[in-house]
């Protein structure tokens, strides 16, 4: 186990190195931070000064060298726009993103798994067909459209929920979270539902496919012949065997959501990481983009690690190697 963790950490270092190199080089070619930062009528001298100040006059390999050296001392560079450390800016935004992603994924699991089990166990019932038709809709509707419709229906017409922004945040364990306040809840429901919708559909379909396959297996029939109740046959025997692909996709999706909830965060003006990334790309704020993508790489490695551990908890035939 310890050997496995060490191996995973080394793997992560390699991944981080590659990501930093690729991202650093390519962001160098997109956008021009100087023209975004300085007013249009800036003099040639001011431009030269800004280039020197940001270190953009040096050749790219020297820039990368400085970048790596700084990282090793814990410095990810300063944002061109905010003139503050890039990592600090990102970390500030993490709680906001985490809370909508986690709320969305909880909604997704709570709805998708039981519906998937039902649709997989009784595929011929009309209600199963309705569920499956609904899931097609959930997969194919783009989140920007769903987001706008939700705002239109629940905020504009019904007036139940606020249309955008984040509710009152309270400091919990050193993080500023809004889910513990009433206004926070009212603000979080629409963006979380928007994020959840596509995931409900996908997890539901995976659960159903796994259930249909496992319901035909002998051990399910054997369990029934033992006198096990239908509910326990479904959830205790068949579902557990159907979970591996669901967990895999769940891991990937939660990583993607944490890293790239850009569209939903933009629609609801949610002050999360995704919105920061979009703004930074727009402003060619390279230090934030690089630090952001490296953080995303770390998040994915950690999630994959967690998924591997969950595999071994579900299936004794899988070992950590």
């Amino acid at each position: 186990m310890i050997k496995y963790i060490i191996k995973r950490l080394l793997q992560m270092l390699v991944v981080l190195f590659v990501v930093s190199l690729v991202v650093f080089i390519f962001t160098n070619y997109i956008g021009d931070p100087i023209s975004m930062l300085l007013p249009e009528d800036a003099s040639q001298e001011e431009i030269q000064q800004a280039i020197r100040r940001l270190g953009l006059d040096k050749p790219i390999h020297v820039q990368y060298g400085i970048f790596v050296k700084d990282i090793l001392s814990g410095n990810f560079g300063k944002s061109y726009v905010f003139s503050r450390p890039a990592l600090e800016l990102i970390i500030e935004r993490i709680p906001a993103t985490l809370e909508i992603v986690i709320t969305a994924m909880i909604i997704a699991i709570v709805l998708a798994i039981p519906l998937g089990v039902y649709a997989g166990a009784y595929p011929k019932r009309r209600s199963s067909k309705v569920i499956m038709a609904g899931s097609i809709l959930g997969i194919s509707l783009p989140s920007f459209w769903v987001g706008m419709m939700m705002i239109y229906i629940f905020s504009v017409i019904l007036g139940w929920m606020p249309a955008s922004g984040r509710g009152e945040a309270i400091e919990v364990f050193g993080m500023r979270l809004s889910i513990f306040s009433m206004s926070g809840w009212r603000h979080i429901m629409l963006p979380a539902l928007t994020l959840a919708l596509g995931n409900i559909a996908m997890l539901l379909r995976l659960t159903r496919a796994g259930m249909q396959e496992n319901m035909r297996q002998d051990y399910v029939k054997f369990a029934r012949a033992k006198g096990v109740s239908p509910k326990k046959v479904l959830f205790g025997h068949a579902l557990k065997n159907a979970l591996i692909p669901v967990v895999t996709v769940f891991g990937v999706r939660i990583g993607q959501l944490i890293a790239f909830t850009t569209i939903t965060e933009t629609i609801y003006a949610w002050p999360g990481m995704g919105k920061l990334l979009i703004d930074s790309i727009y402003m060619a704020d390279r230090p934030i983009i690089v630090a952001y993508l490296m953080l995303v790489a770390v998040i994915f490695v950690v999630i994959n690690f967690a998924v591997d551990i969950i595999y071994t908890l579900i299936d004794p035939r899988i070992e950590l190697r």
């Binding site: 002998d218 051990y219 054997f222 029934r224 012949a225 033992k226 006198g227 109740s229 025997h237 065997n241």
Partner: peptide
């Protein structure tokens, strides 16, 4: 459900697939 297993039990053809792989 009270008859199955308690009064009448079954032994299946293929022992490789009759047991649930995830339980001891």
């Amino acid at each position: 459900m009270k008859v199955r297993g308690r009064e009448i039990s079954m032994i299946f053809q293929d022992p490789m697939t009759s047991l649930n792989p995830l339980y001891t």
